[in-house]
């Protein structure tokens, strides 16, 4: 609670910088806390179940539909080029490289980010975080670190499973329109892929997960008093983490390009 000073920056921009700085500090604290024991393994597993396993139905359905729709939508264009045979390759590359990770991360930002923001916000408001601290448990470790670790580890798993479901959806869409065997479809998909497509997309999923966890926890942990503060935490957690996902995605493209993986 710093002294209110007249600032040359407009209020919105000032708030943005304050929040950016605080989020960085928050991330820094996460890395400090994660290094030293005690480690809250049980809580990490519990959160992983809540975050990872429980998001699977939503991610799975979304991924399946995206795979199906993407294939059906791309088909006419490729057909007009006479390049229908490229459909599996094209859809496979788009799903693995971009659509799978980003859609999964956005879905999770909506589902997990908001729930973390709201949960931590209400924990803050109802003094549960204080209660934890008083009872000798480091609430940052127990609540924040475990959640960020869980999102960081679970989003990539969700992305991989989502990709697989999405590809299956794409396969069904191709199969509906023309005879293609499962083997041929996946052969063509993997023929078009290389490590430069698969690995960066998995690696960036870790960052997506980290961003979702970090922003959700930050927003919840710094929630304003009152129920309105809880709602606002949940809302801004989703907005900021979604935005951050796109920024990370943009950076990932540039980095992979820099390393010549495109």
């Amino acid at each position: 609670m710093a002294e209110e000073k007249k600032s040359i920056l407009p209020k919105g921009l000032r708030d943005f910088y304050i929040e950016a700085g605080e989020t960085t500090q928050f991330a820094g604290r996460f890395f400090r806390e994660i290094l030293f024991p005690p480690y809250e393994f049980r809580e990490v597993i519990r959160q992983s179940y809540e975050i990872g396993y429980k998001s699977l139905p939503l991610v799975g359905i979304t991924a399946f539909i995206i795979g199906l729709v993407l294939t059906l939508q791309s088909r006419p264009t490729l057909v007009s080029f006479g390049a229908e045979a490229w459909l599996p390759a094209m859809v496979g590359v788009s799903i693995i490289r971009e659509i799978g990770p980003v859609i999964t991360a956005l879905i999770c930002a909506g589902k997990i980010g908001s729930s973390i923001g709201a949960e931590l916000g209400s924990m803050k408001v109802t003094e549960q975080i204080d209660a934890m601290e008083v009872s000798g448990t480091n609430p940052f470790k127990y609540i924040v670190v475990s959640r960020i670790v869980s999102t960081t580890l679970m989003i990539p798993v969700l992305v991989v499973i989502g990709d697989a479901i999405s590809l299956y959806g794409a396969f069904l869409a191709v199969k509906v329109k023309g005879a293609v065997s499962f083997t041929l479809f996946f052969h063509q998909v993997f023929e078009a892929l290389n490590f430069g497509d698969a690995l960066p997309s998995v690696i960036k999923s870790f960052f997506f997960g980290f961003a979702i966890g970090l922003i959700g926890c930050y927003k919840g942990y710094h929630s304003k008093k009152g129920t309105e503060g809880v709602g606002r935490s949940a809302n801004s957690a989703v907005v900021v983490s979604s935005l951050l996902i796109f920024i990370i995605d943009l950076m990932a493209v540039q980095i992979t390009e820099f390393f010549g993986l495109i």
Partner: peptide, 8 residues
């Protein structure tokens, strides 16, 4: 996935 890509 990595195996198939690697196999290719």
């Amino acid at each position: 996935a990595l195996y198939f890509i690697g196999n290719n």
